[in-house]
């Protein structure tokens, strides 16, 4: 295997340029190693060589982020790297942010892996954990030896193209992504073991921490319904027959927008249900059961509310990734607001 090329990024202090008084130095680079890059090179052994080191003052990066990012990317790129290693930043906030930022940028632009090291409470962790691989390290340079060893171990695996296991096993702070692995024992065994530990008051590791859902403050109620414009939105998968926009039956990544201004009723000749999460027998006999256009028209005619919005928005809500659902909500909401809609009836299944 050809020796892989590694580039290291460090700040003014670890480059030996000085402390806080030199934190404003602009980006520069040097062929070969400098500061901790030397030991990284040793630890990587024959698998890789540190071909260059990029240096930047923490304040310069922090105060000129967009400019610094571009400049540092160029310097890193010039070395033709296979991997970038930044820091370790320990608990230094500006250094952590700079390391995280340049790692994320390099990984995205050059499509190479990057690793850095930070103390878990470093602000750079929450900002950049998804964009690079952050190895947890001590809170100060007293932990340099262990930090470099941990970073080099992970770097070695990446360089050799080895398949990585879970974050916990590989020694980095997870990038908040779920991935399937096969455990040693069955889920049933793991469950009974976990329960007995819980009952014993022994510490255990849950396999999934409860997500904290965002709380959205509801809009104030409609004061005068007779003047209101109402829109119908549905996650029940009611679409024009033939599903012209190819909305997925499950795990939808899109929604459809359909003109119902000339319709009083949804009929199976024109509409169907494509939802993969419920039996569609009744919905296909009468799509109004899931998207109640007929009732809405009746009430509109009676003057219960002023106007039914011309379009319906529809998607399938089974297995839909929360991130997609949030995006749908935002986009649909913005459009409805722009068009003067006062309230929405959202039908879900």
């Amino acid at each position: 295997m050809m020796t892989k090329r590694v580039v290291c990024y460090i700040n003014q202090f670890f480059a030996g340029l000085g402390g806080e008084e030199q934190a404003h130095v602009p980006p520069s680079s040097k062929a070969g190693t400098m500061g901790p890059a030397m030991q990284i090179d040793n630890l990587l052994g024959e698998d890789a060589e540190v071909v260059g080191t990029v240096i930047c003052g923490d304040s310069y990066y922090g105060e000129n982020m967009e400019k610094a990012r571009v400049e540092c990317l160029e310097l890193v790129s010039a070395f033709g790297p296979d991997l970038l290693i930044a820091g370790p930043a320990f608990n230094a906030g500006r250094y952590g942010v700079a390391c995280g930022d340049i790692c994320k940028e390099v990984s995205e632009r050059l499509e190479i892996p990057s690793i850095t090291g930070m103390f878990p409470e470093n602000p750079g962790v929450e900002l950049y954990r998804s964009g690079t691989y952050i190895v947890p390290v001590a809170d100060s340079a007293r932990g340099m030896k262990n930090a470099l060893e941990a970073i080099a171990t992970l770097a070695g695996k990446m360089i050799r193209g080895e398949k990585l296991g879970a974050a916990e096993d590989e020694g980095y702070i997870s990038r908040a992504i779920r991935k399937n692995f096969f455990h040693e024992v069955s889920g049933a065994r793991r469950a009974v073991d976990m329960l007995l530990k819980k009952l014993d008051g022994v510490s255990f590791n849950t396999e999934y921490e409860m997500p904290v859902f965002k709380r959205v403050t509801p809009a104030p109620p409609v004061m005068d319904m007779s003047k209101a414009t109402i829109a119908l939105v549905s996650s029940g998968g009611i679409v024009p027959r033939g599903n012209p926009d190819h909305i997925r039956v499950s795990s939808a990544e899109s929604y459809g927008v359909y003109d119902i201004s000339k319709l009083d009723d949804l009929t199976p000749e024109v509409f169907e249900s494509i939802h993969g999460g419920y039996d569609r027998v009744w919905a296909n006999e009468d799509p109004d059961t899931v998207l109640p256009l007929d009732i809405m028209r009746e009430m509109e005619k009676e003057g219960v509310f002023a106007k039914l919005y011309d379009h319906v928005f529809t998607t399938t809500g089974t297995g839909t990734a929360v991130s997609h659902a949030e995006r749908f909500g935002r986009e649909i909401g913005e459009r409805l607001k722009k068009d003067g809609v006062d309230a929405v009836i959202l039908t879900s299944t």
Binding site: I177, R178, K179, A191, K198, P211, S251, A321, H324
Partner: peptide, 27 residues
């Protein structure tokens, strides 16, 4: 869990703080 094809989504449609012991059967 239904964590999305990219593994980045919340895997459960609902949550409660009492669910402190969770064994995952996969995404």
């Amino acid at each position: 869990e239904a964590a999305g094809t990219d593994g980045k989504s919340q895997g459960l449609a609902d949550a409660t703080p009492e669910m402190t012991a969770f064994v995952s059967a996969g995404n």
